[in-house]
Nucleic acid binder design. Sequence first.
RNA 1: GCCUGGGUGGCGGAACUGGUAGACGCAAGGGACUUAAAAUCCCUCGGUGAUUAUCACUGUACGAGUUCAAUUCUCGUCCCAGGUACCA
Length: 878
Amino acid sequence: MDAFGGMDIMEERYSPGAVEPKWQEYWKKNELFKVAEDPTKEKYYLLEMFPYPSGKIHIGHVRNYTIGDVVVRYKRMKGFNVIHPMGWDAFGMPAENAAIDNNTHPAAWTYANISAMRAQLKKMGFSYDWDREIATCRPEYYRWEQWLFLKMLEKGMAYRKESFVNWCEKCQTVLANEQVEQDKCWRCSQVVQQKKLWQWFFRITDYAEDLLVHCDQLPGWPDKVTVMQKNWIGKSIGSELKFQIDGVGEDLEVFTTRPDTIFGATFMCLAPEHPLVETLSRGTDQQAAVDAFVQKVSSQERSADGIEKYEKEGVFIGAHCINPATGEKIPIYTANFVLMGYGTGAIMSVPAGDQRDFDFARKYGLDIRVVVQPEGQNLDGATMEEAYTGSGVMVNSGQFDGMDSQAAMEVMTDWLEEKGCGKKAISYRLRDWGISRQRYWGTPIPVIHCPSCGVVPVPEEDLPIRLPEEANLLAKGGSPLPFLDYFSKATCPSCGRKDAKRDTDTMDTFVESSWYYLRYCSPRYEGGMFDPAAVQYWAPVDQYIGGVEHAVLHLLYSRYFMRVLNTLGLIDFKEPFTRLLTQGMVCKETMTCPEHGFLFPEEAEKQDNEALACTRCGSEVEVGRVIKMSKSKKNVVDPNELLERYGADVTRLFCLFAAPPERDLEWSEDGVEGSNRFVNRVWRLAIECMDKIDAGAIAPFKGAASDLESQDAKELYIKANQTIKKVTDDIDKSFHFNTAISAVMELVNAMYVVEIDTADREMKSVLLFSLENILLLLSPIIPHFCEELFERMGNKGSILEHAWPDFRTDSLETDEVLVVVQVNGKLRAKFTIGAQVEEAEIKEIAMADERVQKYLQEKPVKKIIVIRKKQTLVNIVV
RNA sequence: GCCUGGGUGGCGGAACUGGUAGACGCAAGGGACUUAAAAUCCCUCGGUGAUUAUCACUGUACGAGUUCAAUUCUCGUCCCAGGUACCA
C-alpha cells in the first residue's frame, strides 16, 4: 500500500514478492507435488541430475531444474502421474578441500550446504516431491550400496588388483587427476609419483558388448551421446598374436588390428608396467637404462589425456623375439605410449603402417619395412615421410605378395592360426571401473582383511559400515580412516582373529549416482535397495536431464549398474533412462584487472567514458571471453540476487528464452530485464481484459474460425490456435522452450493491437479465449504468475489440475496463402492468393508479374518449379 | 593427440525432412504521453551502393563441390567448447 491509492497502483505490475510465496504455500498445503503409485494412471518419471552440494545453487542448476519443471508441469496437465524427486550427491572431494581450506568438517560443511540449497530450490517454485529427498552421505542410503557391493563380490563382479594412483610424497596423500598440475601437486608443487596399490574394480568389461549393442536401441538419447559411448567402449576386431621370445621358453602376446602387416613388424613395444619388462631386462647390460626409464615414466601421467603431453620415447630392454612371419629376430622395447590396460599391454610395431611406430622407429633408427603399397605409389621405408595406414597391395610379405591388403587380412589370420601363433580376437578400449578411493568422505568398502583368511566380506547383518562422521581430516588432505583404530581394527568374521583390518578405502562417488534414481521410488524403504513394487511401477526414468559433461562416465556407469541389478534378478529392465536431454552450459564474459586478476561483476564500475574500472585500484578492466561460469573465473551470477530483484518466474523465463536447452547459454543482464518486461506486458493485458470485458456475459470463443464474421477476430482466433499447436509441439517434441515463448509473445503482440474499448462482442470473446490459453500455455514456465491471473479470471483450484489446451484443426489456417516467385533462385516477386487456386493458374499469375517479366525478357523459360508446402514457391529457370 | 559438438546482424537466437535468411527478444536510434523523469505505447534497425517512398549487389567462420534452389547435403581448412577413466 502506498500514498497513491494502494491497490490500483499495485495492480499495474506483477509483484513476485507477494504472489510467489502465496502459491508455493498453496501447492505445499494441498500436497500437489506429492505422488504415490496409482495403477489407474500412466506414470511419468522425470529426473534431473542431482546436484553436488557445493554451497549455493548456481545458474546452471537453475537452468537444468527449470527445464525439468516445465516438462513435469506439462505432463501433469496432460494427465500423467508424474514423479519428480530431488536429492544430493553428497559425498566427494570438494567437501574435503573445503574442510582443509576453511577449517571445518566435511559432514558439517555438506549438511549446511544442503539446507541452504534446499531453501533456494524451494524459492524457485520447482515441483519436487520433497518427501522423497535423499542424501547419499546418509548411512540409510549407502548401506544398500555396501549391500550391493557384497553381492557383486560374491558373484565375482567386484575384484581386487594392483593399479596406480597419483601420489604426493610430501603430503603423503593420493591426488585426483584434477589435483595434479603439470606433473606437480596442486598444494605443495612436489613432483607427483605413480604409486602401485591394491584396489577394487567392477567388471564393467563383462558387459562391454551388451552396452555397445544397446547404444543403438536408445532412440530417446541424442546421437552424440551414444556415439561417444560407442567410441569409449571402443570395440576393435583383430588378432592376438604370439611372438616367441629369443632364448626364453616363453611367448610375448600382442593384440593387433592389423595382422596383415605382420611382415612389417620390425620391433616390439611393451608398456613400462608390463611384467616382462623387468624379467627380460634383468641381468642384461640394458638393465640400468630400463630401470631409469621406468622410474622416469612413473612420474608421468598415465591418463589418455596425459600420455599425449609427453614425447613418445622408449628404451631397448635387452631382449629379442622372433617374428613368426619372417623368422627374423626383432628387438623388444618398452615405450611410454603403450598402455598396460589395453589389449595385452604389448604391441607389435609396424612403423610403415602406424604413425606412432613410425615416429618411434625414426627416433631410434629402427627398420621401416613397407608391406602395404598404396595404389599407384612406390613407398620406400628409408625415404617415406609418414606412415601409410590405408589399404593397398601386399609387398615384402612372402607368399601373400600381390594380394589386396583387405583380403589378406582374413587369409593371413587363418594362416597364423594354423601355424599356432595367433587367433582372432576382439578387444575393447573400455577398462574395468576402479572404485577404490584413498579418501575419507565416501562410502566405506565393506570388507575386512584378515592375516589368515585374506579378504573377508563384512556379514550383511553388520551393515551399514558407518563412516565415522566426527573424524577429522589430516592436515594435508589425507584420509584419517587408516589411523583410526576404532574404525580400522576389526575382528575377522570368518576365523575370529582380533588383529584383522577393515578396508579403509571408500568408493568412487560415481557409485552413488549410478542407482540413486531407483532409491527415489521408495526412499525410506528398509528391506533393500528399493521396494520392488515401487520400482516396478515407476522405473525406468522416462526423461533424464543433465549436463552434457556426463555423456560418458556417469551415464555409462548407470547403464552398467542396471545390468548388474538385472543379472542379480533385482530388476527386469536394463536401460535406466528412456529419454535423455543433455543441456548446454551457462556462460558469461570474464573481467580482468591487471592488478587483481579476475573480478566479480560488482568489482567493475562503469565510468563516465563507458570504460570499466576496478573498484579497488581504478585500473581499466578488460572484458574477456565468454566462458563457462565458475567461481575461479568469478564470472558468476548469484540466483539469490535474481530472485530478490525479479522473482522466480522471471528468472525461469529468461533461462528458457535465451537459448534452446542443448545449447550453451550466454548470461545477459539486459535479457533478464526483457523477460521482466514481457511478464508485465502480459499482466497489464490480462488486467485490462478483465477490466473491460464482462466475463459474466461473454464466454471465451470455442467455435470454428469460419463461424466468426469479422476478419480481425478470425485472424486473432487462428493465431491463438496456431500458438497452442506451436507451444505444444515445442514442449512435447523438441523441448525448444525459446521458440514456444516466442510464439506466445507473438500472440500477445497481436492482442495488443486490438482496441478493447471499441471491440465488439465477437472480438471480446476471442480475446478471452486467447488470454485464457496464454495462461495455460505459460503455466509450466512461469507457474506462480499464471496461477494468480488464472484465479483472478474466476477459476477455482490450481491451474495444474486444469487440462492442457487443445487446438482446433479447422482453425489453423487462413484462406489466403503467400506465393513467392524466384527467377533462377533469386526472389523477385510476392503475392497472396486464395488457398484453393490451381497450380497452373499460380504459374500464369507468376509469369505475368511485372517484375518477373523484367527478368525474363526474351530468354526462353527452361523449367518452372512449384513447391506447395507451408508456403508456395515458384522458381522460374531461364 | 583422440572422441563429440558448435560457429548465422552490435548481442542472444529463428528458419521443422534443401525452398522468402534474420521470427521473437536485447541493445541502439527516432517519435508519442508527461511540467519533468521513470514506466508505457508506436516506428526504424545485416552490409555496400545508387537515380534512397524504390531498386541493385552482397551476406549464415573460410575454400571447393552437388542442386532449378544450400544456414541446411558432401569434401577440405581454421577457430571455440565439452569429455579423455581419481572433479562431479
